[in-house]
Nucleic acid binder design. Structure first.
Length: 191
DNA sequence: CCCTGATTCGC
DNA sequence: GCGAATCAGG
């Protein structure tokens, strides 16, 4: 795969949108995230520099070989004031058509998101990712697999999400989103 | 461990 | 120019 105009343009677009290199690489296909990053650098749009206020950002000294005197401070290309219409994020899954209420309540693991008012976007996200869930059994769970249970434990349809967790959290990103909702709906408590 | 971008250097 | 390997963080 080579860098066509289209591919480069898509790269620029996605990078400008703040997409990660790996995601861009995945979207492009045939390239790794390293390739994307390398290309980004070659194109000179690695970071949004150009701001006079910013101090030095090139203070990273490589222990391996950092004796290269960079005599060419490349001028950052001016960002075009192009106006993006909208990010076009999905707003599709607003109506919760089929309530998945089969999540048990006897387990100590997840706080029940059920009746609580959770961000519809987060719920939609969960529904999305549950399709991709690895459906791990209890014994297959590790420290870094999402421990979000799906289904009824008394049913063969019961499994854990199993997707990679975000950080030290017990759930994947999507499930973290619904699990750790800051209490916002019912915050008024008469005291 | 997963992820992120940054840099180098052989190709 | 390209990108894998590596580095450096989160």
């Amino acid at each position: 795969m080579s860098w066509n105009d289209e591919r480069v343009e898509l790269l620029k677009k996605m990078w400008g949108e703040g997409q990660s290199a790996s995601q861009i690489a995945k979207e492009l296909g045939g390239v790794t995230r390293n390739a994307v990053i390398g290309k980004v650098h070659r194109l000179g749009l690695s970071n949004r520099n150009g701001s006079g206020g910013s101090s030095d950002s090139a203070a990273k000294a490589k222990p391996k070989a950092a004796a290269k005197p960079k005599a060419a401070p490349k001028a950052a290309p001016e960002p075009k004031p192009e106006i993006k219409t909208q990010p076009a994020r999905d707003t599709t899954a607003a109506p919760i058509s089929r309530a998945k209420q089969i999540i048990p309540a006897g387990q100590p693991l997840p706080p029940q998101p059920s009746a609580n008012e959770i961000d519809p976007a987060a719920l939609a996200k969960v529904n999305e990712i549950e399709k991709k869930a690895k459906k791990l059994s209890l014994m297959e769970l590790t420290e870094r697999t999402c421990k979000w249970p799906v289904g009824d434990p008394a049913t063969p349809d019961f499994w854990f999400c199993g997707l990679p967790v975000q950080s030290g959290k017990p759930y994947c990103e999507a499930h973290v989103g619904v699990a750790f909702q800051p209490m916002s709906s019912r915050r008024d408590r008469k005291r």
